[in-house]
């Protein structure tokens, strides 16, 4: 098995505003979102980061995609460091989250070409991929419709397609099925499996147990910014369902505090 992602001691602390302190019921000005996280992922697998809301999943993925900088630690994606070669990292990955929006004014056709250019995709390849991807997700009929006029499901499918214009080796997906209707969610999860079949590596975050069971080869459980357990699905589950196992770990982790 070939290692394609290595995360070493990644940490991130946020400064809380007064308002945020009130919401979190704390007088601490600092909040450790990610606490020296280390794990690896192999080429051609789906790796899941499982954890409750606020556990630090999104922060981790945003550090991996170089949108935010770690306070300490580093991560290498297909050999590129998020610290020393963020542009190299961005060329290797496709990052998708609901926070990344597409400009309402443009059409899928224009956006696909625009982002292909930013990723230096050759013209010929771009045309071919556009045709293929648009057909795969049923965007072809809406290729000239402005994003503003697309249905929510179509917008999400387009976001997925746009994040993959450059056929990246690593796909980082924050909460892949959040906010999707059942049909779109199914399309997306099917496609992730298809990508794995093509040898792509997928790193996703989720709080949905069934999604982990159905998709992930390996999983890391993250609670309060710390990675509690990491391994193949069967190793982590240890004969239990992932849900039971998660709550067992959660109790162990939180037990001391309550």
């Amino acid at each position: 098995m070939e290692e394609i992602l290595r995360v070493e001691g990644l940490s991130k602390t946020f400064t809380l505003s007064r308002k945020q302190q009130k919401i979190e019921h704390t007088t601490n000005k600092k909040k450790v979102a990610v606490d020296s996280l280390s794990f690896t992922a192999n080429r051609g697998e789906i790796f899941g980061l499982l954890g409750p809301n606020g556990a630090g999943k999104t922060t981790t993925l945003r550090m991996l995609s170089t949108l935010i900088h770690p306070d300490s630690g580093d991560a290498w994606l297909d050999g590129c460091s998020v610290i020393s070669d963020p542009e190299g990292v961005r060329a290797k990955i496709g990052f998708l989250t609901s926070e990344l929006k597409l400009e309402d004014f443009f059409t899928p056709n224009y956006l696909f070409s625009f982002f292909s250019q930013l990723h230096s995709v050759p013209e010929e390849v771009m045309k071919q991929r556009k045709e293929q991807m648009f057909a795969r997700f049923g965007i072809d009929k809406f290729a000239e419709v402005k994003v503003a006029n697309l249905s929510t499901g179509m917008k999400q499918k387009l976001s997925l397609v746009i994040s993959l214009v450059h056929d990246p080796e690593i796909i980082i997906f924050d909460e892949p099925t959040n906010g999707l209707d059942v049909l779109t969610a199914r399309t997306v999860t099917d496609y992730l499996q298809e990508l794995r079949g093509l040898g792509k590596t997928i790193i996703l975050s989720t709080h949905i147990f069934s999604l982990v069971e159905r998709l992930c080869d390996r999983v890391g459980i993250i609670i309060d910014g710390k990675l509690c357990v990491c391994g193949s699905l069967s190793e982590v589950c240890d004969g239990m369902t992932i849900e039971d196992r998660f709550f067992e770990i959660y109790k162990q982790q939180k037990g001391g505090e309550e």
Binding site: G79, A91, E169
Partner: peptide
């Protein structure tokens, strides 16, 4: 496992053109 995952051949569908401005 090596410490730093090195760039590998992989199975790229295309070669990215030289980075333009």
């Amino acid at each position: 496992m090596n410490n730093n995952a090195q760039p590998s051949e992989g199975t790229p569908v295309f070669q990215q053109t030289e980075r333009k401005g």
